[in-house]
Simulated assay, not measured.
Amino acid sequence: MHFIPEDIDNYVVAHSENEPKLLQQLNRETYQKILQPRMLSGHYQGRVLSMISKLVNPKNILEIGTYTGYSALCLAEGMQVNGELHTIDINEELQDFSQKYFDKSDYKNQIFQHLGNALEVIPEVDKTFDLVFIDADKENYSNYFNAIIDKLNTGGIILSDNVLWSGKILETTFKKDDTSTPALIAYNTLLKNDKRVETVVLPIRDGLTISRKL
C-alpha cells in the first residue's frame, strides 16, 4: 500500500541511496525462490534502516524476524567494528538461505542467527542492545516489547515494522480470524503511553515506528 502518490514514492526511491549489489542479489533471489517475498524490507526501507543504524552506531543489535536476512544486513551497516547483531527467526527452512548472504557480507563474523521462539530466545542472549528491530508475528509485538525493554540501553532505539498494516489500524471491526490488526492497534497504543520510551510513527511503506528509551 502506498501512503503517498506512487509517482512521488518512485521519486523518493530514485533520489535515495542505491541498493548495494549484495542486497540486490538477495532481493532478486528472495522473489525468485521464497514464499511471500513482500515480507522483504526492500530497497528504500532498507536504506532507511541503514541510515538509522549509522546514526545510532550501535554496538549490539537485536532483530526479531530474520526472514531472508535483508534487513539484518542493512542494520549491520551502522554497527560498530566490534559489535554484534543477533537475529531470531522461527522458520528453520530459511536459515541456510540467510546464512549464505551473511557469509558473503563484511559482517559474517558479527551476525549470529538464533532459531526458535523469540520470547524464549531473548532471555538467553546475554547482551544489552542499542538498536532493536521488531518485524515478526504481529500478535506478539507487545510481548516482544516487554521482553526487550529492560535489555535496551538508555537512549537505545526500537524500530517496529508494519505498524500501519495497510491502513487496517483505522478499522473498528475485524474479521474473526484477524488477530494481527487488533494486536497492532494495542501495540501502537502501548508505545504511545509507555513512559519508558518516546515514539514517532513514520508513514514509510507499511509504517515504521521509532521508539527511543528514556
Rank of each mutant, 00 (worst) to 15 (best):
D7S: 13
I8S: 06
N10L: 12
E17Q: 15
N18A: 15
P20S: 08
L23K: 10
L26V: 11
L26M: 11
T30H: 09
R38L: 11
R38A: 10
M39V: 03
L40S: 12
Y44M: 12
G46K: 07
G46M: 08
R47H: 10
S53I: 08
S53Y: 06
K54F: 03
I61Y: 03
I61P: 00
T68V: 12
T68H: 08
S71P: 06
S71Y: 01
A72T: 09
L73P: 02
C74T: 02
Q80R: 12
V81T: 14
V81R: 11
E84Q: 12
I90N: 09
E93T: 15
E93C: 07
K100G: 10
D103G: 01
S105T: 09
I111W: 04
I111A: 06
Q113P: 07
G116R: 03
V121S: 04
T128Q: 12
D130S: 13
D130V: 02
L131W: 03
V132W: 01
E139S: 10
N140W: 02
N143Q: 13
Y144A: 00
F145S: 00
L152G: 04
G156I: 01
I157D: 00
I157S: 02
N162S: 09
G167Y: 12
I169P: 05
L170N: 14
P182V: 10
A183C: 07
L184M: 15
A186G: 10
Y187T: 04
L190S: 04
L191Y: 02
D194L: 10
V197D: 01
V197K: 04
T199Y: 11
T199N: 11
D206L: 08
I210H: 05
S211F: 04
